[in-house]
């Protein structure tokens, strides 16, 4: 019973983590940007979906769509207003740009967090679930919404895989993540790839955010922990490796779920962080890292 419970819950949590972290890994892999506003963008998507339901009285599907749309828009705004001006700046030395972008995205995240708290308070918000009720799986009363979360995550991951491996644009993105200079030699414009990647990222965090909002709920306080969890999953998986992030997400998801069930929910995040420290010592490039 407990075994099945952990298996099911860990899978749902891991799928959600995977979706959130894959976009984060993709952005880093392609453009070298560590986007510390990640959690804030996700929370923005959730709050938008929640507000659409409550203030505009739209249904759960429309609410979810608005949430994803806000994730996409927020991601593109982050790229055009925060990241790109710094990448193109002549005044900042090339080798200092990474740290400038890191700081800028962190501040941008704090700004979004404060704006959300100001307009929508820091109390937690949940998105109205698309599917309700519970399903009995191996004696475990599982919310249908939890299964829905895992299924949607895998559909989106599958679509992303097809996009990257089966389309020309996707292959260009993949190539750019391996060798940006090589891609430009092939006549592909890097800025276009960046825009495509930030758009994909926006959809990923929009979907992940809305699902998280339906499954567990978030508040403006979740901004930091969400960024931190994506960051540690991506570091664990290997910076820039999307498949590494996928595996690491499940490792962290199951480790957290097992801790919560077998030890105490209060210590939930600790073993995953310890694992991160161990991986940093033993294999600094992460599970599937190239760099």
């Amino acid at each position: 019973m407990l075994f099945w419970q952990i298996l099911i819950d860990g899978f749902a949590v891991g799928s959600l983590y995977a979706l959130g972290a894959m976009g984060f890994a993709l952005i880093f892999g392609v453009s070298g940007v560590l986007n510390l506003s990640h959690g804030a963008l996700m929370v923005a998507a959730v709050v938008a979906a929640w507000a659409a339901g409550n203030d505009l009285h739209v249904g759960p599907y429309a609410g979810a769509a608005i949430g994803v749309l806000v994730g996409l828009v927020a991601s593109l705004v982050t790229y055009f207003a925060v990241v790109r001006p710094l990448q193109n700046s002549q005044k900042i030395r090339e080798d200092e740009k990474e740290i400038f972008i890191l700081t800028a995205t962190l501040l941008w995240g704090i700004m979004i967090q404060e704006l959300i708290a100001y307009f929508y308070t820091n109390n937690a918000k949940t998105v109205s679930p698309i599917v309700g009720g519970v399903i009995n799986i191996a004696g475990v009363r599982t919310p249908a919404n939890e299964l829905f979360t895992a299924i949607v995550c895998w559909i989106v991951i599958g679509v992303l895989w097809l996009l990257v491996n089966r389309t020309r644009a996707g292959k260009a993105v993949l190539a750019a993540s391996m060798n940006p200079r090589g891609v430009t030699l092939l006549g592909i414009e890097l800025p276009q790839i960046y825009i495509a990647v930030w758009a994909i990222y926006g959809v990923l965090i929009g979907v992940a955010g809305v699902l998280l909002g339906m499954f567990l709920g978030v508040s403006s306080y979740s901004v930091g922990p969400l960024t931190a969890s994506a960051f540690s999953i991506v570091v664990l998986g290997g910076l820039g490796s999307v498949s590494g992030a996928l595996i690491a997400a499940y490792v962290v998801g199951y480790l957290e779920t097992m801790t919560a069930y077998l030890i105490s929910p209060a210590y939930r995040t600790i073993p995953a962080l310890l694992l991160l420290v161990v991986v940093m010592y033993v294999r600094p490039r992460g599970l599937l890292g190239r760099r």
């Binding site: 819950d9 949590v13 709920g217 979740s222 939930r268």
Partner: peptide
């Protein structure tokens, strides 16, 4: 953020009612 393990544990003890003392958490 995930209260499933907590509710799970409580349910295992078969109480008639859950007596709450929550303020900082609530929605979740």
């Amino acid at each position: 953020t995930d209260f499933t393990p907590i509710f799970n544990k409580i349910e295992g003890q078969k109480p008639d009612v859950i007596l709450t003392g929550i303020s900082h958490v609530g929605v979740q």
